[in-house]
Design a binder for these strands. Structure first.
Lengths: 316, 316
DNA sequence: CCCGACTCATAAGCCCACCTTATGTCCTCA
DNA sequence: TGAGGACATAAGGTGGGCTTATGAGTCGGG
């Protein structure tokens, strides 16, 4: 009420950086987005309200304030029910992606929480824990809703220790060699790929890059010591030449997308950027940039119960 | 409208609702996630607080309550600053994806808001508006922070009308033929792909599917009338055999991922599912499942100014 | 023809989550 | 050893969002 959003922002003085003036003031909260999805699915404010556990007037008001916030009518109300407007359908689709990301967050966080006494204890490398595990956990939850999962993240050594000591029922590691004392199965392949902004010269090449070209070109990279960097250095024989070194995958992606140069990243980190063409993949040949992702367990003790379910989920 | 969602939607019970007891009670709100990202980046609660426009005690309390909610310590506080714990690093990465989705939501919503008088008015097909445009707008905002964009979404006919009448400065359409009176350039290719759960028999095939096999197999599909369905029917000569018909792309993905059968979807909708191997692509040959995505403008009036900037962004 | 069941909207009041200001404690560095 | 930064704690205000209670429009059937 007191905050009428006029044409442009009310004085947000903020720091120098260009973007971000408080996302949370312009984007409805997760509860509201969930409610919107429920309305889309159920065709009625009242039923949607019941589904998310609030009363009908609360839902009505919440949708209305969301419409005010966005400046767009989202639903057509009628005495027979509510349907999304065209704009509403679009907004709902965007909302769905936020909610899906939140679900992945939740799945991961929930596993992280119950360090102890969970029915299924998983140890995983950072990359796997970060990018793959939340999705697996969502799938597992769909099959076995009552399975509590706990997660320990660390490097291969840590994972091996936990699995061997029985602190974890199942482990996931990346890398070529399997720690001794463990049986394993390959569940996927992680591949480092070279990407550039669509406008970069390399994006118009016909030929694939060869090892020499890749090693000779200045690249946007994660800092030395990161897993990604290690794989790349190993593949090139320690020759990778950094144009910039950044400390987060996101920073590398943003930098490459803005045209600063070619970057090398795990394909796991690049789902949307590639399909939306914010970045394009540059073929490379003659360089071994892929490594296996493996599930591991103590020799002879094939996973059973929930661990076996999870393993099944992850395998092709 | 080539859209749907809703008409006889009421009957679709979706997947048997899994758990969901209110995501928003288990996931911190967007403001808290933004704050966490700021802490990760700046290494200090106080500086992070300043960046997001709150006071240091507010930030302290907010992070603390987030840790209580998640049951995990996220940051190591010290008199010299704050660093993420291991768990915190993981949570921050998951949080980043939520925030990124929210940024895309915001970019889209902002364009949707200013129907009138914006400096750059874009008309786009539903698919493009849904999946590609938010990303482009984020990129555009990075280059030209002060460009206000408005968006009209509709089918090819609507887009053509708006562009020809001057109500839109630039249009984006999908499909083979370009409406007359418009010049165009291909900016990307949308491809329908066949996907299954990793455990499905097709996922172990060696050979690519041929048209006959695809036409003969019962598929999980969007309902008749949807854009996706039209392209598929055209490619197969109207022969697509539905195993289930669902009214949203998400429902189709979920159903396929749970192993119900093979599905056919636009690759734009499948970024993360593929890289996380929740779904795997089944190669197909002998069927034309791709269509061009084109930018369009009135014959002879090449885009200038912000429209040209946007166009440049979208092209390889 | 009107009653019951459904839809959504409005009004009034409560409550808690979150913010702010004002302090205190600990550490580091010059 | 004192200045300055970083975080924690305490007390107080405010508003957003919830609830209950009610009203109004539409549909369909006895």
């Amino acid at each position: 009420m007191s905050r009428d959003d006029g044409t442009s922002d009310q004085g947000v003085r903020e720091t120098a950086s260009i973007p971000v003036g408080g996302l949370s003031h312009r984007v409805p909260d997760l509860g509201a987005l969930e409610l919107l999805l429920a309305v889309a699915r159920l065709g009625s404010l009242g039923r949607a309200a019941r589904e998310v556990g609030i009363t009908q007037p609360a839902a009505s008001s919440r949708i209305r304030s969301m419409e005010r916030q966005l400046g767009v009518a989202l639903v057509d109300r009628s005495p027979t029910g509510s349907r999304l407007t065209d704009a509403g359908a679009l907004v709902t689709d965007w909302a769905r992606r936020v909610v899906e990301a939140a679900e992945a967050f939740d799945a991961g966080a929930q596993a992280l929480r119950d360090r102890r006494d969970s029915r299924l204890r998983v140890a995983a490398s950072m990359t796997i824990a970060e990018y793959l595990l939340p999705g697996w956990l969502l799938a597992l939850r769909a099959q076995r809703p009552d399975t509590a999962v706990s997660l320990i993240a660390g490097n291969s050594t840590v994972v091996a220790e936990r699995v061997l000591s029985g602190e974890a029922d199942l482990g996931f590691v990346e890398g070529v060699s399997v720690p001794s004392g463990l049986d394993s199965v390959v569940i996927a392949h992680d591949r480092l790929i070279v990407v550039t902004a669509p406008g970069h010269a390399w994006a118009r090449r016909r030929r694939a890059l060869d090892a020499g070209e890749l090693a000779g070109a200045p690249l946007i990279l994660r800092e030395e010591g990161s897993g990604t960097r290690q794989v790349l250095d190993a593949a090139l024989g320690g020759l990778a030449r950094p144009l910039i070194e950044l400390s987060s995958t996101t920073a590398v992606k943003a930098s490459a997308a803005s045209g600063a140069g070619p970057a090398v990243l795990s394909e796991l980190a690049l789902g949307e950027e590639l399909s939306a063409r914010r970045l394009v993949e540059i073929p490379v040949e003659g360089v071994r940039l892929s490594r296996d992702l493996r599930a591991v367990w103590p020799v002879g003790h094939r996973p059973t119960g929930p661990a076996r379910d999870l393993l099944t989920l992850t395998r092709s």
